[in-house]
């Protein structure tokens, strides 16, 4: 290894590889605390869904699978572009690294843009928890039937028995979970700007790309949270 490669190694590390593995481990430890953070929200979701399954059926029927599914695809694609940014950094392709980082950020903003449309719709339809929350499960059932959706016995029973205040609880969790996820996306987009600036300054190479790699770990983690949120919020109770 040339002395040039050592320029990036902080004095308390023995080698570039040790420094890289330390950075990786540090980010993974942070991600484990994030698992516990989102874990509390997931636990609340699991408990209340097991107590009020019919309200969860009604709540998830009022979300758009089209928008949620589109966003899932966008976020998975952004994970691919992030992985390709790391790959480009590993192989000394600076322009490609910059391009993939920009693309990751753009996909992140597309996701957030769709989320804005979804949230606006929830405000419009009085589905935001609070003084103006209003849901009439029987009216929603009539709308489903008018739209030609096949309403089976279980589905009908859920709409007939759901307590509107429990549906409000579903939406409290919907906004808490997707909101915290969106905050993570915004932070991720900020990190992309920082990565882009440093990439353009030529700070990263195959000898040193730790920031690109660990920011990638964070981005993929946020993607994984959504991988669980999509079926839990949008798909459960559709049959």
């Amino acid at each position: 290894m040339s002395s040039h490669a050592h320029a990036h190694v902080a004095h308390h590390f023995e080698s570039a590889e040790q420094q890289r593995q330390s950075a990786q481990l540090g980010m993974w430890i942070f991600l484990v605390t994030e698992v516990m953070f989102f874990g509390g929200l997931f636990a609340a979701y699991v408990v209340y869904r097991s107590l009020y399954p019919e309200a969860w059926v009604v709540g998830s029927h009022l979300l758009s699978i089209g928008l949620g599914g589109f966003n899932t695809a966008v976020l998975l694609a952004s994970s691919l572009t992030m992985a390709l940014a790391v790959h480009a950094a590993q192989t000394d392709k600076r322009n490609a690294t910059a391009m993939w980082i920009v693309l990751t950020m753009v996909l992140g903003f597309v996701f957030l843009g769709v989320k804005v449309v979804e949230y606006a719709g929830k405000f419009e339809h009085h589905l935001v928890p609070g003084a103006h929350f209003h849901v009439d499960p029987m009216a929603e059932l009539a709308k489903l039937e008018a739209a030609g959706v096949h309403v089976g016995q279980h589905l009908r029973h859920a709409f007939e028995t759901a307590n509107p205040s429990h549906v409000q609880l579903f939406y409290s969790l919907y906004f808490a979970m997707t909101g915290m996820h969106a905050v993570h996306m915004i932070i991720g987009a900020g990190l992309m700007i920082w990565l882009l600036a440093n990439t353009l300054k030529g700070r990263y190479s195959s000898a040193y790309y730790n920031p690109v790699e660990v920011t990638g770990l964070y981005w993929h983690f946020v993607d994984i949270v959504w991988i669980f949120l999509f079926p839990m919020l949008y798909l459960i109770g559709r049959h």
């Binding site: 593995q21 990786q24 481990l25 993974w28 430890i29 991600l31 484990v32 698992v35 516990m36 874990g39 509390g40 997931f42 636990a43 699991v46």
Partner: peptide, 19 residues
């Protein structure tokens, strides 16, 4: 590295315990 995999696995295990 094995230590990284251990930490990641521990995160999953504690999540399951929580739920």
């Amino acid at each position: 590295a094995p230590i990284t995999r251990l930490f990641a696995g521990a995160g999953a295990v504690f999540f399951v315990i929580l739920i």
